[in-house]
Design a protein around this nucleic acid. Sequence first.
DNA 1: GATCGCGTTTCGGTATGCGGAACGCCGAGT
DNA 2: ACTCGGCGTTCCGCATACCGAAACGCGATC
Lengths: 254, 254
Amino acid sequence: MGMDEGDETDAGVSTTRKTFDILEALKVEEGVTITDLTRRTGLSKSTVYRHLTTLTDMGYVVERDGDYYIGFRLVEISEQARTRKTGYTAAKRKVFELGQETDERAIFIVEEEGEAVYVHRYGSLSDTMIGKRRPLHSLASGKVILAEWDDDRVADFIDEKGLEAMTSNTITDPDALYAELDRIRERGYAVNNQEHMDGLCGVSVPVYTPDDELLGALGAFGPVSRFKDEYVHEELPNRLWDKAGEIRVTLAYG
Amino acid sequence: MGMDEGDETDAGVSTTRKTFDILEALKVEEGVTITDLTRRTGLSKSTVYRHLTTLTDMGYVVERDGDYYIGFRLVEISEQARTRKTGYTAAKRKVFELGQETDERAIFIVEEEGEAVYVHRYGSLSDTMIGKRRPLHSLASGKVILAEWDDDRVADFIDEKGLEAMTSNTITDPDALYAELDRIRERGYAVNNQEHMDGLCGVSVPVYTPDDELLGALGAFGPVSRFKDEYVHEELPNRLWDKAGEIRVTLAYG
DNA sequence: GATCGCGTTTCGGTATGCGGAACGCCGAGT
DNA sequence: ACTCGGCGTTCCGCATACCGAAACGCGATC
């Protein structure tokens, strides 16, 4: 392209990038037409057309009445990530039970590339959050994961990602974070007091495999009004520990 | 490529095809190396390398210790398909309840491109089946969907897909299928007696939206030994109708 | 019946994806 | 110690297959 500086990432296959630009655009809004997609992606109409033809031909995108949708064949591929470890599937069931029993939102979260990823969720019908990514330091579940790392690794994380403030309660000071992680290690559970979103509190515990590897974090969250002292520091941690233990047992014995 | 006949599909972007060949290969087996992928895909090593670089750079694939995995960023895109309709998410919860209450495998299935696709499933921990595709005529849930179509559309389906025998019980005769669909329309539920896999029986009912559109099929299945007359024709249909009705109500009122 | 907007197709130039081959590294084998 | 094999990575020249502009055809709308 004749640029002087090229520290922007342009390695690899640019055609593939275009394909995924289109898929990401389809993700944002459903039932999109070709001309919509040209607007959204900035690609030429014929390019969008050719890519969509390829994608529908392979079944990754589905066309209905001129509108395009993400197809279920993509689900099949991506499900590989969610079933990578048997523990993930075991966690799915426990998230559901937890949600039913507590009547709170329940989540199972793992770390990928320094971010918290929702793997399973029980909660609102409209938005499943699954696959969405959040900063580790702003969630109870994220802090649980950080608490498993040694200080060097946490320092690297802070260097790379920073401690962005999501609310006025977000921990943005590294020393405060280290202290918080120590507290979590000591207690065995993490609390999020409106650090990610105003009005939302959460509690989370680590989930271990039978050979003591960290599998992810199991958490429950809800409105601050419900999250009183005894609930946050007694009832929820105990419930969560129970479920985490059950996952571990499931993995150990059938 | 210098072929005489070209009725094979080669429309569109062949680079994108290569990308998805790699993703599909990653789906099959986890933690695969680059050389593994060259073997599996038949592409040259440098091509695989370039594509993987692009995919990891975008976050759709994750590399750990030289092994490559499907990343959660793909989950985020594909989740769009599973949440396309609010009813799908409502069904998720009901599938879970159903599984818990009956202690059978429970599924919610929709049709895409003339195939039955597992959208939600409660059951074994190791294999979630989600996103997998099955012939419509071989499942109770698939037959429920076929029963919603008029005879012309079913005829088109038979023309295009055929009625492959999965077991000795699979309905392979068009007239038998039409008769079976009539029976399903009459009863309001479908039964699968080892038509998909020997030893497995299933029962399924249609799920409708408040404006009487078909959303999908809700089903339960398990070993033939448990699927006695009263269970198959009374208890399970009643339970399934209840759950399907609850989905409908959920969609109508918050 | 004219005009707009859409999906589709054509077409020529060239960027760009391709695979063969070479490199450097590591670990295993003798 | 030296070799050898297998791996990931890089280089490079060629041809191809991807690209965007533009034109086409169709249907709806006024």
